[in-house]
């Protein structure tokens, strides 16, 4: 298809004008690229698969596959690690973080996308900083402050800590999204007699919905997977799944390896469910940045 549409990138150094030749020469480079991708995926499959297989294995030592299969590790894990409670906390934290970060981030993104005002660059930089900083760097001072005000160790502390990277993330994903909406559409709405409120609710909100959904899901996924900040601020009752998983892993030897694996699988499936939901609404590439799918010529 590449040579048909004439899109460059067939991987031909010193290309001749003849099409068929070009196609033949293109092969090795393409193979190399695909080989790398496939190798990566094989390893990925191994990483995820070995956890999955182990979690169902009765016993697994020096063999290709476990000696037998059982589901008992799952009930073990569920009881040992009080997973019901942990999952509940995880959901509470994530949903609160998503809601709050959208509430705070979207209006800010709107202003940053649409307006120019003195100090805009500085504001943008400050909003960018939490994403550019390693979570541990600001996590430790943040946790210290949260402990000082008695917020850490509870749900509220975990939520507040997780907001720190989430709000900038919403701002960062929403700003380009808003920028690509023609500001004249807003002007048109106002010329049609819509006040600011109706303009936001009836015109802007439906147009922003895909972007907000995308960033909401992205924040959700990141929050469920966020280890460092939750780890630094959570108390025994406010651990999310990933933190509980870390604790059970670093205490290896106390628990059976397989029940840790079972917990890991529960975590994985939770993430995959989120991902499936996410991908119903957004293109995977759009999860990361603003993308324009170019039309075929």
């Amino acid at each position: 298809m590449v040579s048909v549409t004439g899109i460059p990138g067939t991987g031909v150094p010193g290309v001749g004008p003849a099409r068929p030749r070009r196609r033949l020469v293109a092969r090795p480079a393409a193979w190399l690229v695909w080989g790398a991708v496939i190798f990566f995926f094989l390893n990925l499959l191994g990483v995820v698969g070995s956890v999955l297989v182990s979690s169902f294995g009765r016993q697994w030592f020096d063999t290709w596959l476990p000696e037998g299969f059982t589901a008992k590790w799952y009930s073990d894990a569920w009881h040992q690690f009080t997973l019901g409670q942990v999952i509940l906390v995880t959901l509470e934290v994530s949903l609160l973080v998503v809601g709050l970060s959208l509430l705070i981030g979207v209006p800010a993104a709107y202003v940053l996308a649409r307006r120019s005002f003195p100090g805009k660059r500085a504001a943008y930089l400050v909003f960018l900083l939490p994403i550019l900083m390693p979570p541990i760097t600001y996590g430790i001072p943040l946790a210290t402050v949260l402990y000082k005000f008695g917020l850490a160790g509870h749900l509220s502390g975990v939520v507040l800590a997780n907001l720190v990277p989430s709000v900038p993330f919403v701002i960062l994903t929403m700003t380009p999204f808003i920028e690509q909406i023609d500001p004249r559409i807003e002007s048109a709405a106002r010329m049609c007699g819509a006040g600011l409120r109706s303009m936001f609710l009836r015109v802007l909100a439906p147009l922003l919905l895909p972007g907000m959904l995308a960033s909401a899901i992205l924040v959700l996924v990141r929050t469920v997977g966020m280890f460092e900040l939750t780890f630094l601020t959570a108390g025994p009752d406010s651990q999310t799944l990933v933190v509980a998983l870390y604790y059970s892993m670093s205490a290896a030897g106390i628990r059976a390896q397989q029940s840790v694996d079972a917990m890991a699988v529960i975590y994985t499936s939770m993430m995959l469910v989120l991902l499936v939901i996410a991908l119903r609404y957004v293109n995977p590439t759009q999860l990361v940045a603003r993308v324009k799918e170019e039309p075929e010529p």
Binding site: N43, L44, G46, V47, V48, G49, S50, V51, S54, V221, G225, M226, F227, V242, L245, Y246, M249, V260, D261, A264, Y267, T268, M271, L272, L274, L275
Partner: peptide, 17 residues
């Protein structure tokens, strides 16, 4: 998928794999 899984799970998988 691996982005969503995060480092902790990857670590567990790598230990096995």
């Amino acid at each position: 998928v691996p982005i969503t899984l995060g480092t902790v799970l990857t670590a567990q998988g790598l230990l096995n794999f």
